[in-house]
């Protein structure tokens, strides 16, 4: 066990955990933010996607000890009022069905848009093909990313 300080969203949190524990479980079970989901545990589904210093990573596959002072952003911290262009576009295009994978989808898409404000259709498809959705919302996810990319960012 080791004490780890996490910079998560706008907070600093100290937790006492096994340093090998994946960041996912630190976020969910120790910090108490449950918007980040467990789907597969091996980086195949993307439900656990969060940002480390703005880059999308699979939190199920990153030990908590390697995070260090990097800034973690989870779905809860993507925007202050739930009004990130992607969050608005997800509503507008009525994207989610069960919703379980959507936090990971949005976090992955947010990292895409951060580096590429106007992605092409195939850039969206390539960037999003690591995230599984069993309900089959891909067509609308794709559309909502296009929609978001044309909105003026409020941040």
């Amino acid at each position: 066990m080791a004490t780890v300080e996490l910079h998560i969203n706008t907070r600093k949190v100290n937790i006492d955990v096994d340093p090998d524990m994946p960041l996912l479980w630190a976020i969910r079970d120790f910090v108490g933010l449950t918007g980040t989901k467990y789907g597969c545990g091996i980086g195949q589904c993307g439900a656990c996607t969060v940002h480390l210093d703005g880059n999308a990573i699979r939190s199920c596959s990153v030990p908590v000890s390697v995070v260090g002072s990097q800034k973690i952003t989870t779905i809860e911290g993507l925007s202050e009022k739930g009004d990130h262009p992607l969050q608005l576009a997800w509503q507008q295009e009525d994207v989610p069905q069960c919703g379980y994978c959507q936090a990971g989808q949005i976090m992955n898409a947010a990292a895409l848009l951060r580096g590429n404000a106007r992605p092409t259709d195939s850039e969206i498809t390539t960037a999003m093909s690591g995230n599984l959705c069993r309900c089959g919302t891909y067509q609308r996810i794709h559309k909502a990313i296009k929609t978001a990319s044309t909105m003026n960012s409020k941040s």
Partner: peptide, 10 residues
Amino acid sequence: AKLIPKIVTG
């Protein structure tokens, strides 16, 4: 869907 605001904010 009514649940979307809660889904997209976790």
